[in-house]
Design a protein around this nucleic acid. Structure first.
Length: 597
RNA sequence: GCCCGGGUAGCUCAGUGGAUAGAGCAGAAGUUUCCUAAACUUUUGGUCGGAGGUUCGAUUCCUCUCUCGGGUACCA
């Protein structure tokens, strides 16, 4: 928001009330005027009346009088503590679309607010392909990284792949027994999906053995299946394989390398399709031993204590007591998290570390951060868990074992296929040469947009039926605004209309034109709010508002058939600048814009 | 049990100590000889889970309560 008269008000008020106690850097902020009120923006005097030791209503009177004397203001109206301001259209355009750099190139964060931020997201396991839950994580992670970068931070996105452990051995055991030497090449199945098939196969075999076990030993009938894992032949074999892996037995390591390479090839395709690039990928097989030394060091320094049974523990007060090293001296999960966090700090020296991880691990991260604080790391105060909610289906939760997960690659394909069909339906005989590319941008954009529309922390419902409709509050709705503008530009070129040059903005007097510029003025604020809250849904909501304002403008204000050349040029320039904002916003969300739709 | 989140229109979700609580979808009625109808316009629909309290003012803050999720491992 860069309105001259708001700036003027911000300097006028302190002069008017010299005793004011203002927060550092204070300025008046105009708010969106409610639809049921007449006005372009609203100044809410409740927000700052106390700084000037005035009653909200009487301050509003002063503000209203100020506006009514200002050359940019057509009319200002006071209602209780609110002042609704109606601008002269020319003044609105002058301070917004005419000064587009002040919107697009605005310095969102002052230099001293910029940080070096390490952000870890995705963190998949290599025993199965990624599903919708991972897609939400990936989308939130890449978009947050992009948003933080956009507002001025130095962002380093990294991945940490869970490439070892008992779950990987499950797929490996099943492959040994049921694999028939299949490979991605021999079967034509994407590597991560092939390995995932054996993970499923393992669980079937395990279930069979547990059922037999319970039949032959009735005293075990009441036990949880998970407690019987090591009593089964296949479970014991899996455990043995994990030990062999740790001991470096060549055959096990070779099988592990081969199957993991299949999975990595598969993940690479999934990431490529989403447009994900990491600065670095940590592998758990290379970091899982980290942390032990740090714990032993902490034990010597008295940060941790040894319990009677030999386990190393830490008392975290309200968070409870936490074992950080088992009584047999081996690591628990948090041990390697401690080690890895220290490693990441030493590798990058970030001002802040962010983890994009589901909200079921909130407690885990609270403990991790508290332990690192207790260990004396000054940077431990700058660790942030971006916890997001689970994705549910209309039929309930997604469960790998029950086969109710929505597969990531299938979902991509479905979204893109629908986009392709819809595009073909619209283009008639004239099939575009870039059909595939368009379908990809629209389909993937629709998916990402839908996932980003929700506040990250909300447990969201994914409705497959609704997700394949591209009407209303969707990514394609926003992309469509750009496509319409592209179309106008193309037609203008065909007709030989001049598109360049600074127009006379005073000509844009329609309410829809002014409303569009007003919405445009809020873009820097939307970016700042989204980054501050680490919530891309703020930006999504803003882009929907902007696209909506554009569509109203489009309906009421013809560009190519405007009354005269001067008005046509002004409207054309208006379109281009709005397109620049939308494209910048979508790009910040890692969503592309198709040339046409 | 204890700890954290949710409960807002038929559905999915925004929202905020302040003006008559919003959007999309779904339902109803319209708009295309006119730059793409993936659009636009109008309209139906709400005791903001319930009860108290603080306040000039509470859906928003506090307490209690009902209800749904998640967590509470020498699992990851």
């Amino acid at each position: 928001m860069n309105f001259t008269c708001i700036k003027d008000l911000s300097s006028f008020l302190p002069q008017q009330f010299p005793g004011a106690q203002l927060p550092a850097g204070w300025t008046v902020t105009g708010e969106k005027c409610p639809d049921n009120m007449s006005g372009d923006i609203t100044v809410n005097c409740f927000r700052f009346a106390k700084f000037f030791r005035q009653s909200p209503d009487s301050l509003a009177q002063v503000v209203c009088d100020f506006f009514n004397r200002h050359a940019d203001v057509e009319q200002a109206e006071q209602i209780k503590a609110f002042v609704n301001v109606t601008f002269r259209p020319g003044a609105v355009h002058r301070d917004t679309v005419a000064a587009i750099d002040s919107i697009l190139k605005a310095e969102i964060l002052a230099a001293d607010k910029r940080r070096r931020i390490l952000i870890e997201y995705s963190a998949p396991n290599t025993n199965k392909p990624q599903h919708l839950g991972h897609v939400r994580n990936n989308t939130l992670g890449m978009s947050l990284a992009s948003l933080l970068q956009r507002v001025g931070h130095d962002v380093i996105p990294i991945n940490l792949v869970n490439d070892r452990g008992i779950h990987i051995c499950k797929s490996m055991i099943a492959y040994q027994r049921f694999g028939n030497g299949d490979t991605p090449e021999s079967t034509g199945i994407k590597g991560d999906h092939l390995v995932g098939k054996f993970y499923v196969r393992f669980n079937i075999a395990l279930k069979e053995q547990i059922d037999e076990l319970k039949k032959s030993r009735p005293e075990l009938a009441d036990k949880d299946n998970e407690d019987l894992f090591l009593l089964t032949e296949i479970g014991a074999a899996t455990q043995k394989m994990l030990q062999d892996w740790e001991a470096g037995v060549p055959e096990v390591r070779d099988l592990w390398k081969m199957m993991n390479s299949w999975v990595f090839d598969g993940f690479a395709k999934t990431y490529e399709r989403m447009g994900i690039k990491f600065d670095h990928t940590y592998l758990e097989s290379e970091t899982y031993l980290l942390g032990k030394d740090n714990i032993l060091d902490g034990l010597e320094r008295g940060v941790f204590a040894k319990r009677d049974d030999g386990a190393v523990i830490v008392d975290l007060g309200k968070l409870g007591q936490k074992v950080v090293l088992r009584s047999d001296g081996t690591s628990v999960y948090i041990t390697q998290d401690i080690g890895t966090t220290i490693r990441k700090y030493n590798d990058y020296h970030p001002d802040m570390q962010i983890w994009v991880v589901g909200d079921e691990q909130i407690h885990h991260f609270k403990m991790l951060f508290e332990i690192l604080r207790k260990m004396g790391f000054a940077w431990a105060d700058n660790l942030y868990h971006m916890a997001y909610g689970m994705v549910n289906l209309p039929t309930g939760k997604m469960k790998s074992r029950e086969g109710t997960v929505v597969d990531a690659d299938d979902l991509f394909e479905e979204m893109v296929e629908i986009s392709r069909a819809a595009t073909l339906e619209r283009c008639g005989e004239d099939v575009p040469a870039d059909l595939d590319e368009r379908a990809e941008i629209i389909g993937m954009g629709a998916l990402k947009f839908m996932l980003l529309k929700f506040n990250p922390k909300t447990t969201m419902m994914f409705d497959p039926q609704a997700s394949v409709k591209f009407e209303g509050d969707t990514g394609p709705y926003v992309q469509y605004a750009c496509a319409r503008i592209n179309s106008i530009a193309a037609k203008a070129a065909e007709k030989g209309f001049a598109c360049d040059g600074e127009p006379d903005w005073e000509l844009l007097t329609a309410p829809e034109e002014k409303a569009l510029s007003i919405v445009a003025s809020f873009y820097p604020q939307a970016l700042a709010d989204a980054a501050e809250k680490m919530d891309c849904s703020v930006l999504v909501g803003y882009l929907l508002d902007l696209a909506k304002a554009f569509n109203r403008f489009y309906r009421e204000c013809p560009v190519l058939s405007a009354e005269d050349a001067a008005l046509r040029l002004a409207r054309m320039q208006m379109c281009f600048r709005i397109r620049d904002i939308i494209a910048d916003g979508l790009k910040t969300l890692t969503i592309g814009v198709p040339q046409a739709m």
